[in-house]
Design a binder for these strands. Structure first.
Lengths: 191, 191
DNA sequence: ACCAACATAAACCGATCGGTTTCCGCTTCT
DNA sequence: AGAAGCGGAAACCGATCGGTTTATGTTGGT
């Protein structure tokens, strides 16, 4: 057997990483030539690892999702209150928005750029967004919100709005997100 | 004189209209071939009316801005309260979001698609967004909000968030926007 | 009736698109 | 050492990109 475990997984990983980086910075319209060059991989290798550019984008987005969630969401077995756990998410967003290369939530951007909701990458993006909505609703529920579904939708409104505004450089979110979310949680009666 | 008034303005107008329609539906990446075909105009005419595709996009966006504002904002000499005037904007957004071909705010989409903020079309889009922010701030001020600047930023958060969420089909905004904005206005002490 | 301006269709330009194929070097196993 | 296969470089495919040019109407003014 040829080292089944431990694997370096290099060529595929480099492609996925390059796809993640370049499509975020330049949009989903980046050429596969640029992708391959950035990854140091030949087009030949690309097309024997993936069926198409679309699939590469989708897999790249999907592979990055767990890390994104792990970074955005609080640990599962957290002892903090739902309120604090929800605010944690927005704190992460706000801190990320300070980065010089921040361009907003990549999953939202992908859905906007690829107008077609049936595009594989768009489907993956929608799934990630749905997961975040689910987190909000679960916490809203746990915190005894008056209308957990409504609160979850409101939080997503703020999340995507903040992400988009900061992503296009229209706002830096400083002193904006926390009070807004706080007000929402108060109004929802989140204990 | 060759009919200075009354003008049919056909060729240029058709191009601007086609640009508005197609870039909204398909994104800023549409080819000029498709643009010309939709407008029933030759590429030659395009390039003697505009310097480049980028300029065409920018002019198209700019030409549509007054109509957009007229539709979105309440009449200038309105006798309604600031609160009602602000809610009018969100009512318009919500009603627009029901349309089957709604894809979110085109000015936000343009900024996200063209990552480059110096792109002429991106500059135009930013200007329109700034105008809306200015409207919110003016109304917040007039209504005696505790912190008019903060309220304006919050309202833009909601506006862009709602536009993006509805645009990608993640939410239909029904029963979501009005209570959320209402809560914000209450919290800001808008009389 | 003639002329000038404008708009069209279509060929053309070099560059790039997504995707395929050929060739060749390098590693790795036997 | 020899065989097998992975992966990189690069040519190649037809199509399209943004943009230019030529040649052919078509129109309206005098």
């Amino acid at each position: 057997m040829t080292m089944t475990t431990e694997a370096k997984a290099s060529t595929r990983e480099r492609l996925l990483e390059a796809a993640a980086t370049l499509t975020y910075r330049e949009g989903t319209g980046v050429g596969i030539q640029a992708l391959c060059q950035a990854a140091g991989v030949s087009k030949r290798s690309l097309y024997q690892l993936f069926d198409s550019k679309d699939e590469l984008l989708a897999v790249s987005l999907e592979r990055g999702a767990p890390a994104y969630k792990a970074w955005l969401l609080p640990p599962a077995g957290d002892d903090r209150s739902p309120r604090e756990r929800i605010l944690h998410v927005f704190g992460q967003l706000e801190s990320q928005s300070a980065a010089p290369d921040f361009q907003g939530c990549r999953y939202l951007a992908v859905q906007i750029e690829l107008k077609d909701p049936t595009h594989p990458a768009s489907r993956v993006a929608r799934g990630v967004k749905d997961d975040l909505t689910g987190f909000f609703r679960a916490e809203a529920d746990r915190g005894g919100a008056r209308d957990p579904d409504l609160l979850a939708r409101q939080l997503m409104l703020i999340f995507d709005g903040a992400s988009a505004r900061a992503g296009v450089g229209a706002d830096d979110l400083a002193g904006l997100v926390s009070p807004t979310v706080g007000g929402l949680l108060d109004a929802a009666g989140l204990r």
